[in-house]
């Protein structure tokens, strides 16, 4: 799980071009939007694309997306729940 979260942070930094941000600067449970990283609605679309490209997971329901993209922890939990046992 820790490896997945670290990898996810690296992928978020690259996808959103978060200059001057390192994986260790991102708290697992900090909100990604508003506070924390201060991301916006365009970023949320880009994170959806990231999930689809990197993990082959398509989020169909936008309400579900809001919960999944709350934090790195919630994203990692979601990815893990979709991976075959």
């Amino acid at each position: 799980m820790e490896d997945l979260k670290t990898k996810l942070k690296e992928q978020i930094i690259e996808a959103l071009n978060l200059q001057d941000t390192k994986p260790e600067d991102i708290d697992d449970n900090a909100p990604l939007f508003g506070e924390g990283l201060g991301l916006d609605s365009i970023d949320s679309l880009e994170l959806m694309v990231l999930l689809e490209r990197q993990y082959h997971i398509k989020v169909e329901d936008p309400r579900e997306g809001r919960k999944i993209l709350q934090s790195v922890q919630s994203m990692a939990d979601f990815i893990q729940s979709k991976q075959p046992a």
Binding site: I42, L45, E46, V49, E52
Partner: peptide, 13 residues
């Protein structure tokens, strides 16, 4: 590359 799926909105906008 992504066969018309999973397209990033930013470059399009």
């Amino acid at each position: 590359t992504y066969k018309e799926t999973a397209l990033n909105p930013t470059p399009f906008i």
